[in-house]
């Protein structure tokens, strides 16, 4: 109930009867009591804020195991990881060559295909299927979908165009499609979300 204004007013009521000492003691008590109320109020807000962050059951779903044995060269699949789409694409040699042929200077967010894949598994391009512009799901992973002029992905919302390494080439998106943490637990399974060793 006590407020900052409270302490000011309280000290006004302090009469001239007591000496300087008394005034200081009085102020101390009021300031201390009001500060306690203030600190208590702020601390009481903490649970109201932390309850909004992901709960333990959400955090527990941090990894998704994907079987990639059936993804042929040139195909891709869309899987769900932490409730977000992930594109798993088996690049053809032609697509790999196209990606490697692009000079770094032509890229808005310069990264090589090798940096975006695992060593020896350069044909497996695994990215989040979330456009870095405003979060739409780009086209291009499904059979027959518009891959855009650069042969990668095309976001229909605002026309961002990605190349075969899922790097931004044209349109409003600022970054390449995000590559999540993942590791190959066997030649045909990928654990998305797992920190690679």
């Amino acid at each position: 109930m006590a407020t900052k204004a409270g302490s000011a007013e309280v000290s006004q009521t302090a009469g001239p009867i007591d000496g300087e000492e008394g005034v200081r003691r009085r102020d101390f008590l009021n300031v201390a009591a009001v500060s306690f109320a203030g600190v208590g109020g702020v601390v009481a807000l903490a649970p109201l804020f932390v309850q909004m962050s992901p709960s333990a059951d959400v955090l527990a779903l941090a990894t998704t195991e994907v079987d990639i044995s059936k993804v042929q060269s040139g195909q891709g699949i869309k899987v769900s990881w932490r409730k977000q789409p992930v594109f798993v694409r088996n690049l053809t040699p032609k697509e790999i060559a196209e990606a490697n042929a692009v000079p770094m200077s032509a890229l808005r967010d310069p990264e090589t295909l090798a940096q975006r894949t695992k060593p020896g598994k350069q044909n497996w391009l695994i990215t989040l299927g979330v456009c870095t512009h405003l979060g739409c799901v780009p086209l291009g992973i499904g059979e027959g979908e518009n891959k855009g002029p650069f042969g990668g992905y095309f976001c229909p919302c605002h026309g961002s165009e990605y190349d075969t390494a899922a790097r931004i080439r044209q349109g409003p998106a600022p970054k390449n499609l995000f590559v999540p943490d993942y590791e190959f637990t066997s030649p045909t399974t990928v654990m998305i979300g797992a920190k690679g060793k």
Binding site: P47, L48, Q51, S53, S55
Partner: peptide
């Protein structure tokens, strides 16, 4: 389950 165990400070609320 959700509120009492998993939500941050859910048990307190």
């Amino acid at each position: 389950q959700l509120i009492m165990r998993d939500v941050n400070a859910g048990w307190l609320l």
